[in-house]
Design a protein around this nucleic acid. Structure first.
Length: 484
RNA sequence: GGGACCAUGGGUUAGUGGUAUACUUCGAGCCUUGGGUGCUCGUGACCCCGGUUCGAAUCCGGGUGGUCCCA
């Protein structure tokens, strides 16, 4: 009895979220653990998901004036030291190269934890006049942050894949627009591609990116009530431009200092995606990201085998022609039930079943991965029908993710109430906050929850008049949550 | 930052001191298919280092890796 369970997922999403997640990642063939702690191997199916996220985001970047480039993996120590906030912010988690072959290096090299310090000098070199601005660069690469905390594939790994955009602008307005453009594109990626609603906000002062003027964030709520920082976009002000001499001559022939931004989204997005949609049957992927959007499972007996296989091969060919990513599972010696379970484990969003019944009536049966609902439709206009079904699957995924967020933003007006509400429900708690980091401490110490964001709009009136912790006048609304 | 638990073929697992059990995957063959069919054969494992012992997967110490809980 339990033997057959071992093929699939054996732990429960709601009861053992950690075990469940590790199992889904491995059995869904997204990733394996690498031999060194804190590192993972991304498998082809996992990488394929990353590539589709890349394609979407990269397309939008290019439509909005961004060019891709590539900078070195290593950053000389002296460069890293030019911006002191970066040094302090990342110091404990920088990996260093000290030797080249057997020879000790004269200057040690940091493995990039982020690339501002190696990109900014070139932004400076390439910026002479206001005509050179805005200058928008992006690179897809990996970075290394030697965090001591334990690994969770995609959520927290010492090396991770991401994109980092770096731009220089003539003035604050242009740089701020840039910051918001990228944040909006991250929001769009989550909502339109990953089928996940997110909340946009700003990090509190003490949790900004080192050296940034403003760090904006998209936050997604996981089913276990914890928040994930889904992507960040920083308005860096002029601090990096000053440290790296990014200056230009304006229209009046005056020397000006540029305003810069940086923005990044990592494969943590994949972690959030897997955590959000997958279930006790295994991985669930939205249509736009799935390596296979549709799997065709033929159902035949010995005497119908040839006809059914031909009918299903036709179907697969027609869909392939129409640009649908389709796979025909014509493995013999495997019954349909096995195949259903196998593809459900791997996250294929839509299944087409064709057996004698369907063939006789010129129909196909669709089965939706998220909820197992099945519908039988005519075989005519198949590509159009498949598009509709895939849209229906996307809508289901979005709706259920939305349900996770819905009702999970609660108000609290005292320390006890914040602790009680977060302890009991998780999710977000919004409350008045004086802006002092010290007022976050009691919550952090008690239940490891923190202020994950404040409203983007600095002028927005706080939700309550007083800070829930110290009772002083509230400056803004704080959103407390446990986070990954 | 503290604590708990775990580590055996690719995956899951039995095994309280005598060279390892079973399921599954995978390969070959047979069987045949509306929710993980059955059969035969084959490949394949005790995390690392040290200790105790005639003998260690098993006991002890240390490391590494994983999961969880608390901060």
């Amino acid at each position: 009895m339990t033997d057959e369970q071992d093929l699939g997922i054996t732990s429960s999403k709601s009861h053992q979220t950690g075990d469940w997640y590790a199992e889904v990642v491995q059995k869904g063939e997204m990733a394996d653990y690498a031999p060194m702690g804190g590192f993972i191997v991304t498998r082809p199916r996992g990488y394929a998901v990353w590539e589709r996220l890349q394609e979407n985001l990269d397309g939008w970047f290019k439509e909005t004036g961004v060019q891709n480039a590539y900078f070195p993996l290593f950053i000389p120590e002296s460069y890293l030291e030019k911006e002191k906030d970066i040094v302090e912010g990342f110091d404990p988690e920088v990996a260093w190269v000290t030797h080249g072959g057997n020879e000790e290096l004269e200057e040690r090299l940091a493995v990039r934890p982020t690339s501002e310090s190696i990109i900014a000098p070139f932004l400076a070199q390439w910026t002479r006049s206001h005509r050179d601005l805005p200058l928008r660069l992006n690179q897809w690469c990996s970075v290394v942050r030697w965090e001591a905390t334990e690994t969770k594939p995609f959520f927290r790994t010492k090396e991770f894949l991401w994109q980092e955009g770096h731009t220089a602008h003539a003035d604050e307005e242009s740089a701020w627009d840039e910051t918001m453009t990228r944040l909006d594109q991250y929001e769009r990626l989550y909502e339109e591609v990953m089928a996940m609603p997110v909340m946009k906000g700003r990090k509190p002062e003490h949790d900004k990116f080192p050296g940034a003027h403003t760090t904006s964030t998209v936050e997604a709520l996981m089913p276990d009530g914890k928040s994930v920082q889904g992507g960040t976009s920083h308005y860096l002000g002029t601090s990096f431009a000053e440290a790296f001499d990014i200056e230009f001559v304006d229209e009046d022939e005056e020397m000006q200092t540029a305003h810069t931004t940086s923005w990044g989204l990592s494969w943590r997005a994949m972690g959030a995606l897997i955590m959000t949609h997958s279930d006790d049957q295994g991985l669930v992927l939205p249509p736009a990201l799935a390596p296979e959007q549709v799997v065709v499972v033929p159902i035949y007996s010995e005497d119908t085998q040839d006809e059914i296989l031909e009918y299903s091969a036709d179907i697969a060919a027609e869909l392939d022609e129409a640009g649908v990513r389709v796979h025909l599972d014509d493995r013999d010696h495997r019954n349909p039930g096995f195949k259903y379970n196998d593809w459900e484990l791997k996250g294929v969003p839509l299944r087409i079943e064709v057996g004698p019944n369907e063939m006789e009536d010129g129909e196909v049966t669709f089965s939706h991965r998220p909820d197992g609902e099945s519908v039988t439709e005519s075989r005519e206009d198949l590509a159009a029908t498949v598009e509709e079904q895939l849209d229906a699957v996307f809508a289901k995924l979005y709706a259920s993710a939305e349900e996770t967020l819905e009702g999970e933003i609660r108000e609290a007006e005292s320390r006890e109430e914040i602790l009680g509400t977060l302890g009991q429900h998780g999710g977000y708690v919004e409350t008045g906050w004086c802006g002092d980091e010290a007022c976050e401490e009691p919550i952090k110490d008690a239940i490891a929850a923190e202020i994950v964001m404040v409203p983007l709009d600095r002028d927005e009136e706080p939700i309550h008049d007083d800070c829930a912790i110290c009772g002083e006048e509230a400056e803004e609304t704080a959103y407390f949550a446990k986070s990954y």
